Computed example of a mutant assay.
Amino acid sequence: MALRPSLQDVLSTLQAEGQLAPDVLEPARAALEVHQRRSSAMPWFVKAFAGAGAWLAALFVLSFFACAGLWDEQVVMGILGLGLCAGATLLRRALRGVFMEQLALALCLAGATMAVLSFSIETESENVGAALALVISGVLLLVYPDAILRFLSTLGMVGSAGFLAWRLVGGVALDLWLLGCAALMHVLLLEQARLRRGAAGELVGPVAFALACGIPGVLLARGMQDMARHLLEMTSALPDSVLTLGLTALTLYTAWRVLRALSLEPTGVAGAAVFAALTLVAVLTPHTPAVITAVGMLVLGFHRRSSVLLGLAVAYLLASGGWYYYDLGLTLMAKALALMGSGLVFLGLRLFLLRRFPAPATEVR
């Protein structure tokens, strides 16, 4: 069965099942053809050259400011950066086209960076820079109509808020912030279809995928003893096993929701097998919370039929598994047994579910 069937396949299937009125099919196909012609009207290499030209034009604008000697005036540069953000947002809302979209994106990112760095240097405070980055990222997330910048704005908000939590409160606040962001990611992806119909539907996808990219990466960096522990040695942090426990609870909740969506009883045999497998994986890797996070992303990826999310989950699972092997203070035999046991758990779970609940796959035609 296709991971993500095309709209044409969906329309044909609905018509074959009698779920689609005959007079609706032809207008839908005509709209699909028009959309396809518009999306493929400009070749990809023309779009690439237009985007490169836009970023080069933005670089020339910034070089003009440098040649004018404004780099030494931090307050002026900060105000100018805020003005660039506002002007780029208005430009993006008013005009269309690959060149203008990329130009506005480049100017907006450059302006935000200029404002954050300038006021941070002027006040000699990293906290001020992080707070300003948090505010700018939040405003751009709401007002800038572009999925790429919304993705980057979410990463900026998560990173800035996490930095402030660590600097002002300590490592425990940072770990709790990670757990909160992970919970938000699971909720957004589980409720994605419903939330997209709301007023903020365009924000759901970029925010969810930004969290899916950022959270496992932070967890991997946190597990690097030479990097994270040196930063957190002055403040307390949650034990790795406690963080793994919280992330495991989120993954179990997601598995419960997915079983319900598949019309399987979570308290039945299938649910017990899935919950036991996920719990065993967490028990085998208590010092690497990124592993159970990647497993939870795999569950969400299959549930949402998202190849991008599946790719991210597999990449993070391989990275976290490799780091688990090379970083733990255990013998090579113990690490090998833990990794091999995790693989055997899922292979056994797959074999059990296929035999206990046989369901022949059908191709979408």
Rank of each mutant, 00 (worst) to 15 (best):
M1K: 10
L3Q: 05
L7E: 13
L11N: 06
L20V: 08
P22Y: 08
L25I: 09
E26L: 05
E26T: 12
V34Q: 13
V34I: 10
R37E: 08
R38K: 13
R38E: 06
S40T: 15
S40K: 13
M42I: 12
W44T: 09
K47L: 04
A54M: 07
A58D: 01
A58Y: 08
F64I: 01
F65L: 12
M77S: 00
M77A: 00
L84Y: 12
T89Q: 11
L90D: 02
L90Y: 14
R92Y: 12
A94Q: 11
V98E: 10
E101F: 06
L103H: 07
L103P: 01
A106F: 06
L107Y: 07
E122H: 15
T123A: 15
S125G: 13
E126P: 02
E126D: 05
E126L: 10
N127S: 12
G129L: 03
A130K: 00
I136D: 00
S137V: 11
V139Q: 04
V139S: 04
V143K: 14
V143G: 03
Y144E: 01
Y144L: 03
A147W: 04
I148Y: 04
L155N: 09
G156C: 05
M157C: 10
G159W: 03
A165F: 11
R167V: 06
R167K: 14
L168W: 12
L168E: 14
V172I: 11
D175Y: 08
L178G: 02
L178Q: 13
L179W: 13
C181D: 04
C181F: 09
A183H: 09
A183V: 06
H186R: 15
R196T: 07
R196L: 03
L203N: 10
A208V: 05
A210S: 15
C213A: 09
G217F: 12
V218A: 09
Q225N: 11
E233V: 13
E233L: 05
P239E: 07
S241C: 02
V242G: 05
T244R: 04
G246L: 07
L250R: 07
Y253A: 08
W256D: 02
R257E: 14
L259E: 02
L259C: 09
P266A: 03
P266R: 09
G268Y: 05
A270I: 13
V274N: 00
F275V: 06
A276E: 07
L280E: 03
L280K: 12
V281A: 11
T285H: 15
T285G: 04
V299S: 04
G301W: 12
H303V: 02
H303R: 13
A313S: 15
V314F: 15
D327T: 08
L328S: 09
G329V: 07
G329N: 12
L330C: 01
T331F: 02
A334S: 12
K335H: 07
A338D: 02
L347A: 14
L349N: 09
L353I: 15
R356E: 05
P358T: 14
A359R: 14
E363K: 07
V364W: 15
